[in-house]
Design a protein around this nucleic acid. Structure first.
Lengths: 409, 409
DNA sequence: ATTTGTTCGTTCGGGCTCTGAACGTAATGT
DNA sequence: ACATTACGTTCAGAGCCCGAACGAACAAAT
């Protein structure tokens, strides 16, 4: 009889939490806003806002940047901004052929970023995790040297991750049933910092949601094309995780029941027509061990020169993507598609066929015409998203972070 | 930076609302529960529960059914149940060839139910709405005669309905851009009762969610097979509506890019292989103007007797459903499928091929094997769901209904 | 029949949170 | 210099939940 979504009892503290989140959200959205402005935006009383601000400042989540420089009558407000020295999020991405880390502050700006090429396909899970642990230690040290406290860690993995954080399978890594959080915690001293483990496509979507470029985009599907094809679905500013956390596996949506056999055992999966390997082999771009970024460059060059095989491969991939995305839009009604990963670079060629298919297959297209946008974030989307998600957890429940800040003092 | 889901400021009243919903939910889930039991279940203090109960009783949402008959030591609790004379929900379904109404009490039991056959395809929107208005008036009168106050109305429509209640298109009715709520309000005096307009498939899913038979099922896809094919997606006990409210249009998911042309203009839609018309014509069941229920009976008879054409049609439909549902499950990770509408009766024949396709195409199947269940609700699911949704709105925010009850006194 | 132990529902004081109005402060325009 | 406008703080007030204590109801043991 699920009438009440959150089945925890509410108390006064709940109100505080919620309102603190509201205040912080206002500051994040409009940096430099004054207390009065926050009161007007949130609908809270000025007194309430002031109190909340005091506590947020004490926890070093926000800073008072002094009087606003604003023309007009009356006393000037004092500007408030997310604290640059507040808790940071550390993002880690365990890719198939690279390992990336990045450090993001409360405002979402990247403070440090590092990517290491390495073939994780051939190495064992232990070896890879040892490497991850070294990278995390290095990143933590670097953060400390910068005076950037790390308040949470996000780990992006190319596979099915349960909401609990358990990695069920990562086909391209050859991993099964790995508790990534535990594996990391035994190798690095993380000092009780919260760790979020998630799917790379979902984190990439989160990154897109939080990126300044995308503005007020709060409903979209972000589709990532790397070795696999994954989607992250954002509805009303929140990731749709599904029951276990396995949502967004669009790569294995059946696009043609008589199609090619996929590595998963099924026939006609989207990946067999729009995965990076498929596009490259259809386009005749040799995949002899070159880094993926180089392959994409070669492909776009050929496309720009009008190579027929390349154009055909792009059209095929676009159509397949269009059919799969049409299914997605018909099913969950999210008519904005953001092309991320390597699809971003291919947008000029795959965008039109995608739009064509969406126009014919999406039943609500006449009323809400689907849009296809291009992500501004490159391959770094997933790491940034992982870091940003860690930060977001702090931002969403500041009262929590403030409690730990108090106990640490 | 959408960190906070609900951007309204919270106050003391918010807490009250939430907790009242919690208490009511506990009573709905476990009728006859005592105050102490509620306190234990919800985590609220006994004092808080008692206060909440007092107000809920005053609003006639619940009733005190006297001392519990329970063995064991200690004082017996006093049982609490949803009030049988509390506000009822009136459900209306505007079908393609019928018009149904039903009256549901707070506990979800149907108190009255009526279905009228009528060909709404050939009549104009005004004629149909006039008919609907008469039916609603009759139902309101009947409710009053029964001493069952109507607290809200739900209207199920076979088409795309925006969250605002605007019906964008109902292909099988030939309607476009109809404000069903307004059309009804001008024809019947509804006395400020809230009206919810929604898609029939979504309401059917709601009915399944709230039906006692389905127990603790809080995550599933309910799939309705009538003239069209629709899905209602329930995640964590809540309907996934999508951005505009257009979710669940699985009937036009492309199952075969080289398939038959659908009425929507696209090729290979699920409906062309698993819609009622398609199944019947594939099975060779003549559709000469007979009521749909009769057609299904004929089909199941033939299937039971092993008619090859019928078996083949069922297998084809099952496969197509399986492919479309696999896409849905891959995308949103809801691995429980409930077959409703006429699919319920066909479950013995379409269930196995659906499961086969799910097993091959769903990428998470090895970890979370998809299930296919059969709905116990028949064709009445949508009306009941509409009525239940109206009731649910009262139950979810009792403090609101209590306020109106007070002002009415 | 009485006592004991358990459970239930209510009462009451305490603490916490938001609110609204009043107040002091800062900047602008006349 | 003064009126005006806007900002941030202070303070009393009211509302809500909680925990403990209390009386009531009931079963089992004495």
């Amino acid at each position: 009889m699920g009438a009440v979504t959150n089945s925890l009892p509410a108390g006064l503290h709940t109100v505080r939490r919620h309102n603190a989140g509201l205040v912080l959200d206002a500051i994040a959205t409009r940096p430099g806003i004054s207390r009065a402005g926050i009161a007007a935006r949130t609908g809270l009383a000025k007194a309430t806002v002031s109190g909340s601000i005091d506590r947020l400042v004490a926890a070093n989540l926000i800073v008072d940047t002094g009087p606003q420089t604003r023309s007009g009558r009356g006393r000037r407000g004092t500007g408030l901004t997310l604290s640059p020295s507040g808790p940071h999020g550390l993002g880690v991405e365990i890719g198939v052929d690279y390992l990336a880390t990045c450090l993001v502050d409360l405002a979402g700006t990247t403070r440090a970023h590092r990517i290491r090429a390495c073939n994780n396909r051939t190495r064992s899970m232990r070896q890879v995790m040892a490497h991850v642990a070294r990278a995390v230690r290095a990143a933590l040290d670097e953060a400390e040297a910068m005076g950037a406290p790390v308040g949470g860690i996000g780990i992006a993995v190319p596979g099915l991750v349960e909401s609990s954080g358990m990695l069920r399978t990562a086909p391209n890594l050859g991993w099964r049933d790995v508790d990534v959080r535990a594996e990391l915690a035994t190798r690095v001293d993380l000092a009780d910092r919260p760790i979020i483990v998630g799917n790379e496509a979902n984190f990439a979507a989160t990154a897109e949601l939080l990126s300044a470029e995308s503005g007020d985009l709060r409903d979209f599907v972000h589709i990532t094309g790397e070795i696999g094809v994954g989607a992250g679905i954002i509805i009303n500013g929140a990731l749709l995780a599904g029951v276990h956390g396995f949502s967004g596996e669009i790569g294995h949506v059946c696009v043609d029941p008589d199609g090619l056999l996929c590595g998963c055992g099924a026939r006609g999966c989207l990946e067999t027509m729009a995965g990076q390997d498929a596009i490259m082999s259809n386009a005749g771009v040799p995949a002899n061990g070159r880094p993926p970024a180089h392959l994409i460059d070669t492909l776009t060059e050929r496309l720009a020169h009008g190579d027929p095989a390349a154009l055909d491969a792009a059209r095929t991939a676009g159509r397949a993507l269009g059919i799969a995305l049409a299914a997605l839009i018909n099913i969950i009604d999210v008519p904005v598609v953001v092309l991320g990963g390597s699809y971003g670079a291919l947008e000029p060629w795959i965008g039109p066929p995608i739009l064509d298919e969406l126009a014919t297959h999406v039943i609500s297209a006449p009323w809400e015409p689907p849009q296809v946008l291009r992500s501004q974030l490159g391959a770094e989307a997933a790491v940034r998203g992982a870091a940003a998600a860690a930060v977001q957890d702090i931002l969403a429940d500041p009262e929590n972070a403030m409690a730990s800040a108090r106990s640490a003092t």
